[in-house]
Nucleic acid binder design. Structure first.
Lengths: 190, 190
DNA sequence: TTTAAAAGGCAATGATCAGTGCGATACTGA
DNA sequence: TCAGTATCGCACTGATCATTGCCTTTTAAA
């Protein structure tokens, strides 16, 4: 259980190499099994069978379901949203919030978030949102470079990010782009 | 897997009866195992052993870990917070938010929320927050009875409830009462 | 091309899990 | 008190899981 070592092998990490192919297949298997929502429990043998690899391989590369889910979540929530750059803070945030709402509405996303939180605890939870914080930070810093005042990142997270994730995880309400933009207008009045 | 039948037995449900004692012991075992944070996976045999009952009993009364967690979460998050009634909406919300922050800071609470979400999905998630919505609704309705305008429940959930749960579940930031009150002051400016 | 290291496939093992009859015990209502 | 019913403990069973040693294949560098 070496939490610091990457599940990426030091060698064999060429884009189309065998290791990379296995990694992709396992990731896809996890997402499919979670999306299937058959209530079937997510175990390493099940994932391995679905991915067409041997369970041993998954045990050795990832160690546990928790670490596997953390890895899948990290990939899934990295680089999936392009941070908008419209020149206006309000516009940037509105587009970002509405993109995020669309992303969280993807039927594959929610089960992954829930499973990762439940199985991988702190590690998993931060894997789902670490990049979001950085993206908001980037939007704010650009606005500051333009010489304008901005709310703190914490404030934006409370006002925009939190409601999006809360609704997705805890309720069955739909995350509409209109509502997402409303969150921004409450944060930036007038 | 009868999702509608209550895990409470029809007979033997007297306060101090054996069924009630077993139920309490199982609930306590779940919370302790989650709080222990040994990374040990939560299975029915493990819970049963800790509670001093036979696994068969747990299988028959709850059926699965998911339903068990949903039941525990429902108990845990029902009647645990006294809805304040100060005569002022702002004061009510501030106390409520600060009480909720304290509740979510309890080391036993967070693992229960995470595990329930991860294992029991939609069912589990709503078990963690259903009562919160009703409590906020009650606070708002009292203010309306006094003849005052109030935000919608959805707005209060977005502005107060969501940040509290988001911070608890997704970050490692502490939930201070001061910050919780700040959320209310952003919702009710002037 | 050759060679050493890394990763994956395979088979086998002990441990744990989910689920099932059956008899004993505890509870409810008459 | 007493009968009927529900719940629980107990002893199994088959299935699945986590893990290991050994060998083959792939990979990266000489």
């Amino acid at each position: 259980m070496s939490a610091t070592t990457s599940p990426l092998p030091r060698t064999g990490s060429r884009p189309g190499g065998r290791s990379a192919r296995i990694r992709a297949a396992v990731h896809r298997a996890v997402e499919e099994l979670l999306a299937d929502e058959t209530g079937e429990l997510l175990t390493i043998p099940v994932v391995a069978a679905r991915a067409g690899v041997h369970a041993t391989t998954v045990y050795r590369r990832w160690g546990s379901v928790g670490e596997l889910l953390t890895d899948v979540a990290t990939s899934r929530f990295s680089g999936d949203i392009v941070v908008p750059d419209t020149g206006s803070l309000r516009e940037d945030l509105e587009r970002y919030a509405s993109d995020l709402a669309k992303d969280l509405n993807d039927p594959d996303t929610l089960p992954l978030v829930r499973a990762t939180i439940g199985t991988a605890g702190e590690q998993g939870a931060s894997a789902c949102t670490r990049e979001r914080r950085q993206q908001l930070q980037a939007i704010l810093e650009r606005e500051q470079t333009r010489g304008h005042q901005t709310p703190t990142v914490e404030r934006v997270m409370d006002a925009v990010l939190a409601p999006l994730y809360y609704r997705a995880v805890f309720t069955d309400q739909a995350l509409t782009p209109e509502w997402a933009r409303t969150l921004v207008s409450h944060l930036l009045p007038d």
